[in-house]
């Protein structure tokens, strides 16, 4: 029993990792005022590029870098449409998701079902990994796990404590006032969308080269959309995103734990999506003024207009 609990929690951390990465990226993006519904598609692009580069070169970290580059590159489409052309951000993000899912399916077709032989070793943190229970759950994990937590903390520090981060936040709250301070709103929003895209792709890379070690079309399975919901649940705070993502990782894993109990696997597969609705419901009971939503989220900014 003890072993089952430990291994469940350990796997919850693994399942939560891509959610945390994508949520952190979306938090930064939305803080600048741009809603990016393309996460799912960018994640798929990240997964397929990381997989192809890794399987052909044998260099997983090169795969990660290329994936981040590809994620940023494809996100430019959303940035250009929603920032420069002031297009509807909902539709533009959806289009990005369609394109990302389609392109990844096309590029990845020859690689479907191929196993990845390159192993990414877990990082065992000296001394800490010897702590009973916690050592196995928190300190014997894939490098992505540590990276995700580290980046979430960096993102928190960046948004709350650095000049550039504060400028990004004020861009999402009041772009016109920010512009009068001599800040280039367009440039900051582009930057935020690109950072968000890089994070989504990194989440995808984790899925294909570390989590499942294979590529199949549609393997993101709605995780990008869940990350968008987690962004709300985390109240646009990367620090809160950490526990929100791992809580959800737990819900993904609990399916496998409950399967032997004779519950319908289809019902269990529903759980993450049901849970997403439930957390959004719980958040809605909060005072909306305490939600912290960026005031200008989703509103195009027109320069030189009052």
């Amino acid at each position: 029993m003890e072993d089952i609990i430990i291994s469940t929690l350990q796997r919850a951390m693994v399942a939560g990792t891509p959610l945390l990465l994508a949520t952190t990226g979306e938090v930064i993006c939305e803080r600048s005022g741009i809603l990016n519904l393309g996460v799912e598609g960018v994640m798929a692009m990240g997964a397929v590029t990381a997989f192809i580069v890794t399987i052909t070169t044998g260099q997983p970290w090169l795969g990660v870098l290329v994936a981040i580059g590809a994620g940023m590159a494809i996100s430019i489409i959303h940035a250009f449409a929603s920032i420069t052309l002031q297009a509807n951000q909902v539709v533009s993000g959806l289009a990005l998701t369609m394109l990302g899912l389609g392109l990844s399916g096309m590029i990845g077709k020859p690689y479907v079902g191929k196993p990845l032989s390159i192993k990414m070793d877990d990082w065992t943190i000296p001394y800490l990994s010897d702590i009973p229970y916690l050592g196995k759950i928190l300190f014997t994990q894939s490098p992505f796990f540590y990276l995700a937590i580290f980046l979430a903390l960096v993102a928190w520090f960046f948004l709350e404590r650095t000049r550039l981060g504060i400028q990004i936040r004020s861009t999402g709250e009041n772009p016109r006032a920010t512009e009068t301070q001599g800040v280039n709103v367009f440039r900051l929003r582009y930057l935020s969308v690109l950072i968000g895209g890089g994070f989504s792709a990194l989440a995808g890379a984790h899925l294909s080269i570390s989590y499942s070690k294979s590529w199949i079309e549609g393997m993101t399975a709605g995780r990008g959309w869940i990350a968008i919901a987690l962004t709300i649940f985390a109240l646009w705070n990367p620090g809160r995103a950490i526990w929100a993502a791992f809580l959800f990782g737990g819900i993904f894993v609990v399916q496998y734990l409950m399967q032997p109990l004779g519950i319908s696997p289809n019902f269990l597969a529903m759980l993450p999506y049901l849970a997403t609705l439930i957390i959004l419901f719980l958040i809605s009971l909060k005072d909306p003024r305490k939600l912290n939503a960026p005031a200008m989220l989703g509103e195009p900014y027109k320069r030189g207009e009052r």
Partner: peptide
């Protein structure tokens, strides 16, 4: 691959909203 249709659809949608 089957995904081709999705690429066509996604691309056309992007250009339609850009056209606006």
């Amino acid at each position: 691959p089957a995904a081709t249709v999705e690429i066509v659809n996604g691309t056309l949608l992007i250009f339609l909203i850009m056209g606006d």
